[in-house]
Design a binder for these strands. Structure first.
Lengths: 216, 216
DNA sequence: CAATATACTGTTCAAATGAACAGTATGAGT
DNA sequence: ACTCATACTGTTCATTTGAACAGTATATTG
C-alpha cells in the first residue's frame, strides 16, 4: 500500500530500467531531457512525471536541483541496479604466488583484478581472498578448464574433496585435497598426472570457493 | 614525456583525490563550483584550471558541456584506489524463460540476482543479459556442471561452437550451436543425449558469455 | 458520476553548471 | 631575460537542467 510495495506500470518499469541502465553504461544517470528523448517524448514533463511517480513509490532517489542526481534504489525486481558497493570485492589475480604468502603479496605478481559480489559467490570478503588463472588441464576431471579463474580463500581448513592451490616447484597449482589412510594428500584430477603428493610437504595457499569462466 | 607519464603537482593530486573521493562518497562527481568551494577558491576558474591540467595529463575525462561528468581515469602511477571503477551489474537469474522472451520477462520467473563486474566478464551490460542456473549434466562435455550459473546475452548471433540457451519442451536448456551440412543445429555435450536438433525449430534465447560456479 | 492516477504536449523560469576572457603573481627551466 | 606552467581572482555568457504551470485524454475506482 505504501512506498516500495506499490506496483509499477509497464511504462514506469521501462523508465526505471532505462535510468538504471544509463547509469551503468554511461557511468552517469540521464537528465530528464535525455529520458524524454530516449522515449520520444516531446515534453520533458512526461519524463519528469514518471520520475516523480517512481520517486513517490520509492524506486528512485535524487538530490533536488542537482543535475544528474537520479539514483535507482536497490530492489530485487530491478536488474541493473548498482549493488551496494560494500558487497563488491576486488580480488587480485596472481599468476604465481611466492612462498611467503600471507606476509607479502607483491604487487608485481598481480596480473589484474576481478570484482566479485560477495552474496553471489557466497564468500566472505577478506584480504585473504584471491584469484588464480588456471593453467593446464590438471583439474579437468573437476571441470576446471585452462583460462578459468579460481577464487580462493587463504587460511581455510581444507576438507577432503576440496580443490586447493598448492605451491609445487615454485608454482601455484590446483589439486584436490584428499585423505589417504588418514594422511592428507593432493591429487590431480587428470589421469595424465597420477601422482599423489603428501600434503605435509607443501604449502597450501588456499581453498577454492568459486570459479569464473569467460567464454567467447 | 607526454600524457599520463607526466607527474602531478601536490595541488593537482589533492584535486584529483577530492574528485575521486567525492565520486565514491556522494555517488556523483563534483561540479566545478563544488571543487572550488571545497578548496576555498573564490574563483571557479581555479578549479577549472586544475581539472584542465588533469585532463591534459590524462588523469581525468569528462563529457563536454555535461554536468557532473568528471571521471577519474585508472592510472598505475597514482594511488587513488578507485573502487568506484568497478561497474557492477545485477543480472537476473531465471529458472525458466517463457517463449515470448524479449517482450516480457516476468518478474515471477526471476529466481534471484547475481552481480557481475562488467570488466571482469567482458560483457557489456544490457537488458538482454541474463543468467540461468544450469540443470542437468547435458553440457558436461563442455565442463559446465549442474548448479553452475551461465551468463547469457540475448539477441547475439551464435557462432558454431557457442553454447546457447534454447527453449525445448517449454524449458530453457543449454546446447552447443553447430552447423551440420550448412544447417544450424543444436547438440548436447553428453553422450547420453546424442540427438541433434535442427535449430530452426526452436527459439534460441541467448548465447553464453560467461560462467560462474560456487563451490563449497 | 466524481475523483484519482496515468500518460502525455507545450511553454516558461530560474538555478546549476561548464566554459571562456582578462588579469596578477610565482617559480622553474632555457 | 624570456617563456611557460602553476595557481589563483573576478566576471560574464551560454547551456544544461530541474522544476513548475496550464492543458488534454484515457482508464480505473469508489
Amino acid at each position: 500500500m505504501n512506498s516500495m510495495s506499490e506496483g509499477l506500470t509497464k511504462r514506469q518499469q521501462e523508465v526505471l530500467a532505462f535510468i538504471a541502465e544509463h547509469q551503468q553504461v554511461n557511468e552517469a544517470p540521464p537528465s530528464l531531457r535525455e529520458v524524454a528523448a530516449h522515449f520520444g517524448f516531446r515534453s520533458m514533463t512526461a519524463a519528469a512525471d514518471h520520475v516523480k511517480a517512481l520517486r513517490r513509490k520509492g524506486y528512485l532517489k535524487h538530490r533536488p536541483h542537482q543535475a544528474r542526481s537520479l539514483r535507482a534504489v536497490p530492489s530485487p525486481s530491478t536488474p541493473y541496479q548498482p549493488a551496494s558497493r560494500a558487497r563488491i570485492v576486488d580480488v587480485p589475480v596472481y599468476g604465481c604466488i611466492p612462498a611467503g604468502f600471507a606476509d607479502e603479496r607483491r604487487q608485481e605478481d598481480v596480473e589484474g583484478c576481478i570484482s566479485v559480489d560477495v552474496d553471489t559467490l557466497g564468500v566472505k570478503p577478506s584480504p585473504r581472498t584471491f584469484a588464480l588463472e588456471v593453467r593446464g588441464d590438471s583439474m579437468i576431471g573437476r571441470h576446471i578448464m585452462e583460462g578459468d579463474y579460481a577464487i580462493l580463500e587463504h587460511g581455510m581448513d581444507p576438507r577432503p574433496g576440496d580443490v586447493v592451490a598448492a605451491l609445487i616447484d615454485n608454482e601455484s597449482t590446483l589439486k584436490t585435497f584428499v585423505k589417504q589412510r588418514g594422511k592428507p594428500c593432493l591429487k590431480a584430477e587428470n589421469p595424465k598426472y597420477p601422482n599423489l603428493i603428501p600434503a605435509q610437504e607443501l604449502v597450501i595457499q588456499g581453498v577454492m570457493v568459486a570459479l569464473i569462466r569467460k567464454v567467447r
